[in-house]
Amino acid sequence: MEKPNLKKLTKELGFECLSGKALLDRIPQSAYVSDLLSDVMGKARNGMIWVTSQVHKNIVAVASLKELSAIVIVNERPVEKELLEQAENEGVVVLASNLPAFETAGKLYNYLESWQDAAL
């Protein structure tokens, strides 16, 4: 079976897509959880989903430069319109989760791993 794209993942995990709706056919490669931007710059790999509670505009630059497949902002943190516009311009998918980072990461982990197992 083919790995799920962001559209399927967003729907099945109950995330909300805030920007980059046209880019949801991307197939995410694992995920990375961090609120430290340099940590993401240094350690995340391209194609990953980035789970964070940061909501300032620099996260868009980091996601774009690292070619991450999406940012998941946790805990219903309010996101400014300006950030979403910039994300839209730079081809960055921003998803929102209404759960805290731990639960969000847990759900993502199980979901991505189950597809990993199915592929074996």
Binding site: D35, L37, S38, T52
Partner: peptide
């Protein structure tokens, strides 16, 4: 607070 200043920037550059 913005998630910078983790002391990883210069090592990231070096790497």
């Amino acid at each position: 607070q913005m998630g910078f200043g983790a002391g990883m920037g210069l090592p990231n550059i070096k790497r």
